[in-house]
Design a protein around this nucleic acid. Structure first.
Lengths: 150, 150
DNA sequence: TTTGGTGCAAAGGCTTTGCAATAGA
DNA sequence: TCTATTGCAAAGCCTTTGCACCAAA
């Protein structure tokens, strides 16, 4: 796949280095998947990632995309989240932990930072001994509330 | 399916009434599914429900179980939750809203009541305009913490 | 050169659907 | 009776796997 070697520069040093540090090869396919995740909208499904990748190189197979996503998740470079009823979503792992608010009505997904959860972490730790890592909140977003209560 | 009419009494008045109020027929299959959900462990998958149902009546088909679960969820009698990586879980809808803590390590699922979330609801409402209905928290349970830090 | 990675095709779970037969109201 | 509901089988969707060929190091 010589013709897309030029895309290797798109993979940030960070991710490329991690791959190689662990003895994985830096292939164009992996670079493309990473690049798509970095540039694309957050919360992409495997099929969406594949579609974007194939816009650039149509012959990249979806099984390779799945294998690459699994690898990147395993290396902590990508985060996998279950938001809705059926699909898995993937997004670049960020430094600051964040959580997801999913609107039951319109399906929109927004982010909340760890510090904006009120006393949740403290409450769960002290009362249940449970240390939260990540959470998903289902409910009703502002827009949908405004729309129904004019 | 005359031979299991006697099980109809197992369906609480509440659920049976709701079904009939909406014009749905009270079939033995529906009664069995409801009964299994009420008696069984919380967080059963569709297949687990079907297995339990079939312990009593082996010829009940899994597609009927899926259709019944969908119906009961739609009527607000059963709650569907996505907890783990792959499966959907079903449980009887209760009066007091509760949420789920899922341990990344051992997979255990515990419940938290709405009042024990610290200031989460208030924080999300005021800062994001988002009104939470239900949440799932992934993290590390007490047992797993104790096990690794003796 | 060496072996990890890829494309392809097939299979695997879980879930849904079409349809004729059945049974609840 | 009349039509909602069921069982069965088949299809659908997303994801994984086996294998021969290819290419990164």
């Amino acid at each position: 796949m010589r013709e897309c070697n030029r895309f290797a520069i798109a993979m940030t040093h960070h991710a490329a280095q991690t791959l190689q540090d662990f003895g994985y090869r830096l292939t164009p396919q992996r670079t493309l998947v990473w690049d798509v995740l970095r540039r694309g909208t957050p919360h992409m499904s495997a099929e969406e990632v594949c579609g974007k990748v194939q816009e650039q190189f149509p012959h990249v197979n979806i099984s390779t995309v799945y294998r690459t996503l699994e690898l990147l998740v395993g290396l902590g470079l990508v985060r996998e989240t279950r938001l809705g009823p059926t699909q898995r979503y993937f997004e670049v792992e960020e430094e600051v932990p964040h959580h997801h608010l999913v609107c039951d009505q319109c399906g929109s997904v927004t982010h909340v930072h760890d510090e904006d959860l009120g006393g949740l972490n403290a409450a769960l730790s002290s009362e249940q001994g449970f240390v939260p890592r990540e959470l998903t909140v289902f409910g009703r977003c502002r827009d949908c509330r405004d729309r129904s209560e004019p």
